[in-house]
Write a protein that binds this DNA or RNA. Structure first.
Lengths: 193, 193
DNA sequence: TAAATATAAACCAAGTTACTAGTTTTGTCA
DNA sequence: TGACAAAACTAGTAACTTGGTTTATATTTA
């Protein structure tokens, strides 16, 4: 979704071709190691946007080298973009992979939930360390936006670590509660009872 | 990925058929409004897992009604599952849609970044309110796991809100910094230096 | 007929792997 | 000095994977 809308937004500034869009995006998010977007993704997204009528091919340059398909925003593309800016970004509510893993580890024999937590904590600390290092290497005079993005991720990692401690402390309690295992219900409309 | 691995984990307990797996998953994550998984996703995932050789059809029950394809875990499926439990869940590092939107709003005319922040804050407060309500309606004697999952999401939302304030306070500063227009890299073979 | 179990086929959107092919610059060697 | 290979950039295509949705189905039972 981000890449898609970013393309629309760049094309709202002026018509561009695929490679130009890729560079613009990478510059915006902070380069390869932050959000490396592969060239192919730009082009597949462009064709999908064109199919949807949100952009159109304006012209094809060919100054000696390979072709440059120049895309431009259509009216409906502009509307879509404005709708995006006007709406909020919903969080991935409750779809937490680690939570699922932890719950499953409680009901799977041969797997220790404490070990699962331990492993996860190790990974989180690792990621936290990497990010703080990279954050401290950034220049606040020119890369403030990047630093703020680092801060956001760091805050999330710290929250995850606090949560992990919380869960670990109450794991016995969770384990004592009945596991939510539904038995297969009988076929057909349920009895009125 | 979660659904996929959850299926493997359920099949590790005992062989089951599609609908049974769906019920097990919904019971685990807490029902429709938390993580509604459509039946079709279970079946598509099952066929993909079978193609990958991680599960196999053990038998087909047919007690009068429609067939029930019973799936079982294979050895390589068990290995895969253990690998999953043994590894950590990596966070979606730095791929933040709202950050992209905010940055784009700075360089798109006709869009106010303050408005974008305002809208997002409204949505976050809304989500926070909904979650705290639902959390308070849960029973800690029987749904402790669910409550902890609510807590995790709530902690993330709170972090997002704090971050939003932080960013808003420094928005002028960000705006004064040069927009990261893509720097064109030097072409050709790099100098030996 | 209403409501539930149980499954299948077709499709979709985001993103990846692997590839082609030309361009520009630098390094090196005969 | 001239030829040429090496390395990186520019620009794009095709095929595939993955996670998920839409829609349609048949069956059972109150």
């Amino acid at each position: 979704m981000s890449v898609r809308n970013a393309i629309l937004s760049f094309l709202a500034q002026r018509p561009r071709h695929g490679y130009e869009l890729r560079n613009a995006f990478e510059a915006l998010v902070g380069g390869e190691d932050t959000w490396g977007v592969k060239p192919a993704q730009i082009y597949t997204t462009l064709t999908r946007l064109e199919e949807a009528g949100l952009i159109c091919q304006e012209s094809v340059e060919q100054d000696g080298g390979p072709e440059k398909r120049i895309y431009a925003l259509t009216e409906s593309g502009l509307l879509e973009l404005q709708a995006w800016f006007g709406s909020g970004v919903e969080s991935e509510h409750q779809r937490d992979e680690f939570f699922v893993k932890l719950m499953l580890s409680l009901s799977t024999e041969g797997v220790s939930p404490y070990r699962v937590i331990h492993t996860q904590r190790g990974l989180l600390y690792q990621e936290l360390h990497d990010l703080t290092t990279r954050r401290s290497r950034s220049n606040p005079k020119t890369e403030l936006a990047q630093i703020l993005l680092f801060d956001k991720t760091i805050m999330h990692l710290e929250a995850d670590l606090r949560w992990l401690d919380m869960v670990e402390a109450r794991l016995d309690e969770i384990q004592r509660q009945p596991l939510p295992e539904p038995e297969s219900k009988p076929r057909g409309r349920p009895k009125k009872s």
